[in-house]
Design a protein around this nucleic acid. Structure first.
Length: 549
RNA sequence: GGCUCUAUCGUCUAAUGGUUAGGACACCGCCCUCUCAAGGCGGCAAUAGGGGUUCAAAUCCCCUUAGAGUCACCA
């Protein structure tokens, strides 16, 4: 068979060759050791937490090495595509600060000299490479119908043989030029298959950046390169795109490991050097005592939008992910409390090989620490930004008086022992609702050891005594004075020494004031709260308290 | 089922043939304290099972078991 006749028959309109494209997309001028990586999702819905994880690793590997990080969209499966899928991914990435250098930077905006980064716009490129393979006798058209493929499969299952289109099962491998020509003239649909040079008894091995050396049987299946519509399969697109985009490191989910023999063979057939691979274990979820891959359908926390909605600070989410990737991130953070997470040197070979369970509790803890390390202004800004979209009522209240809102976050926020009570912005409303008069709808929790009469007397007396703006120690002295006046001990220790001599102690006085003003038995620094609320509001709340209990 | 990978506290993991098997989260106790949060101190808690190799095994080898991934004109 004359293969150039065949390639002309199959691709009459393709004039460019792979060489033309190599010229168009020359090697990148990057320093030695710079890694070129990409995140290449298909736009089938919102960004998955596993996708963010993979993107983060790729971004780190590129930027740590002075390389380039690309966002390529793999939209070769039009059936599964979802509207706005691209913007969902970009927004998800941007929301967590993962910014590509090349590829898509907005729904309809691409940057970079190695594009287009949208696979559906690259059809001609793939076909040029396909034509070249046909020319070399390494690819052929296959006219088998779905039913024929299915029956081959059935037969193979019956014989307990490797399923797939290969060897003697690959009928269309042996079609003559005339047969092919006739089929084409009749308009019979076909796919283009690789004429796999592999043999069943040979094995290949490759070095995975995360897993080390992996050995596998060589690929022998004549995999589909171009689908009926002329659009490539993932495998072929990967080989062509990552070659032309000069990707050095392909970092992807470990569901791809078993396809590596196909990929390596494709590169070999095209005479190309394959990139280095690193396969990331999936993020898992616990279910009925077992582990399973976290699922878009079943698990709300699978979508990165969940973390935005809940208001986990993006730094916290990223740091949690980095912690999953390299557990020594924790040590780094402890030693460098102020450093940016980007200063951490992520190491691929330290990544876990088996999938880990996603732990929302640990995430929450990390977020608490992250928030605790910020200034009140930073916390307030971030909380407000969240509230803007997810809690408009709270936003309006904070926005009305930003200085007041900032004050709330400064309670107990001293640098040595910062308060750690908020892990995500959705907790702000409940934590501080009593600080906003419109949200203050008290259901008083009362201290049991104090009589109602005493509570009223304490509260009313305090309303008279309260002087805003006092120094904290001075203020507490007045509370102690009140304790004494009411027959309570000035000090807890004093009370414990001789409980029968007092009605209670200064802590009980604080409790009454606290409950009157916040409706709760627990709160941050009472002194701060009273001063923030101001005399009028404190007095008003105390009156409300004495009337309602 | 074939192929591939994996197995250390409940969870995330450290320990590259010699450690009282370390840390973090969670949980429990104590201390500090006007409540809470935090903090300090302590506790609970693991090498899946069985065989080898070795003076010595969580670590190397084999088997078993369990889990994960994959076997599409999906990525």
């Amino acid at each position: 068979m004359n293969y150039s006749d065949l390639s002309a028959l199959l691709f009459p309109h393709i004039t460019k060759t792979p060489q033309d494209y190599f010229k168009q997309y020359p090697p990148r001028a990057l320093p030695e050791g710079a890694k070129v990586t990409r995140f290449a999702p298909s736009p089938t819905g919102f960004l998955h937490i596993g996708g963010l994880f993979a993107a983060l690793i790729s971004e780190r590997m590129a930027h740590q090495s002075g390389g380039v990080f690309m966002l390529r969209i793999e939209d070769t499966d039009k059936k599964r595509e979802v509207q706005d899928g691209v913007s969902g991914i970009i927004e998800g990435l941007y929301a967590f600060g993962i910014i590509p250098d090349e590829g898509f930077v907005a729904q309809d905006k691409q940057v970079g000299a190695y594009g287009t980064y949208l696979q559906s716009e690259r059809a001609e490129i793939y076909q040029a490479f396909a034509k070249d393979l046909v020319n070399k006798g390494l690819a052929y058209p296959c006219f088998c119908s779905e039913q024929e493929i299915a029956s081959i499969r059935q037969q193979q299952e019956l014989n307990k043989e490797l399923p797939g289109y290969y060897g003697e099962y690959a009928h269309c491998r042996n079609l003559s030029f005339e047969e092919i020509e006739q089929n084409i003239k009749q308009g019979k649909p076909y796919v283009l298959r690789l004429k796999s040079p592999g043999s069943a008894d040979k094995r290949i091995s490759f070095k995975d950046g995360i897993r080390g050396t992996i050995e596998m049987p060589e690929n022998i299946v004549d995999v589909v390169l171009l689908k009926t519509d002329g659009i490539p399969t993932y495998h072929f697109a990967h080989a062509v795109d990552d070659t032309l985009m000069r990707t050095t490191h392909v970092i992807r989910g470990d569901e791809w490991i078993s396809s590596v023999p196909i990929h390596l063979q494709l590169f070999a057939c095209m005479g190309l050097k394959p990139p280095k691979y690193a396969h990331i274990a999936p993020i898992m979820k616990e279910e009925n005592g077992g582990k399973r891959k976290i699922s878009k359908r079943k698990d709300p926390e699978a979508s990165v939008t969940y973390y935005s909605e809940q208001g986990y600070p993006k730094q916290g989410v990223i740091e949690y992910l980095l912690n999953l990737a390299n557990s020594n991130f924790e040590d780094f953070r402890r030693q460098n409390p102020k450093a940016s997470w980007q200063d951490f040197k992520l190491q691929m070979n330290k990544m876990s090989v088996s999938g880990c369970l996603f732990d929302l509790v640990k995430l929450h803890d990390i977020c608490k620490n992250v928030i605790a390390s910020w200034t009140a202004e930073q916390v307030c800004d971030a909380a407000m930004e969240w509230a803007k979209t997810y809690d408009p009522e709270l936003y309006a209240l904070m926005h009305k008086d930003p200085a007041y809102a900032t004050t709330l976050f400064s309670f107990d926020r001293n640098p040595d022992k910062p308060r750690k009570d908020i892990g995500k912005w959705s907790e702000v409303r409940d934590t501080f609702s009593y600080m906003f008069t419109p949200l203050f709808k008290p259901v008083y929790e009362l201290p049991e050891q104090i009589s109602r009469d005493d509570m009223k007397r304490i509260a009313e007396r305090y309303a008279q005594m309260f002087v805003p703006g006092q120094d904290k120690n001075l203020w507490f002295d007045t509370v102690k004075d009140l304790a004494q006046e009411m027959g309570f001990a000035r000090e807890v220790k004093q009370y414990k020494k001789d409980p029968d001599a007092y009605k209670g102690h200064v802590g009980d006085i604080s409790s009454v004031i606290r409950v009157a003003v916040t409706g709760r038995m627990k709160s941050p620094d009472l002194h701060g709260i009273l001063n923030a609320l101001g005399k009028d509001e404190v007095v008003r709340r105390i009156h409300q308290f004495t009337e309602e209990i």
